[in-house]
Amino acid sequence: MSNELKSKLVELNCQGLACPQPVIMTKKALEQKPAEMTVLVDNLAAKENVAKFAASSGYGVSIENADGIYRLNLLAKQTAVNVAAGKELAADSEAPAILLGRNTLGTGSEELGAILMKSFFVSLLELSQLPRAVMLINSGVYLAVTDSPVLQPLQELSRRGVAVMVCGTCLDYFSLKEKLAVGEVTNMYSILRELTRAGNTITL
């Protein structure tokens, strides 16, 4: 269903209009099912009514007030979690999703773990059915940066359509944002959505 949502940004200027005009205009615009939309209003009643209408129409709302102009940013609830991944993943229930919480594989020896992780990714490329997503959290984000030992296989997976989802909070924590070399920065909403949609999840 979310495939029907349009990603084009829409801005609706309802300044100077009294209720119920802003709500009617918002209703009309939402009939086009935009994934995101901005509505500008300049009075309290319009702000409250447009927000309530949007919320009841399946949109989340953030509101900011600057010099008496209320900017309402509407985001479709059903796609809110997918926007960060940059794409809507196909609802393929068979392909697994892989959640990597570390930059090495297994416990015991870090040195060995690094070698095993490299073997893991090289082997992954040989599978007949690729995972739908590889999600990297905590030190797992080190795998997606410029000097990652598995950058090449990860880039190849991405090229073949596997969503490489990299935790933005984790990149921030390790000060790696500028070094990201593959994948899309994502957040916990997207990761959780993906975990619950995949046929099965492999956690490493």
């Binding site: 953030s62 985001l75 926007v83 909070t169 957040n187």
Partner: peptide, 13 residues
Amino acid sequence: APTPREISASCGQ
């Protein structure tokens, strides 16, 4: 909690 997507497209806390 993770920052709601309605507030920020980036992934803040």
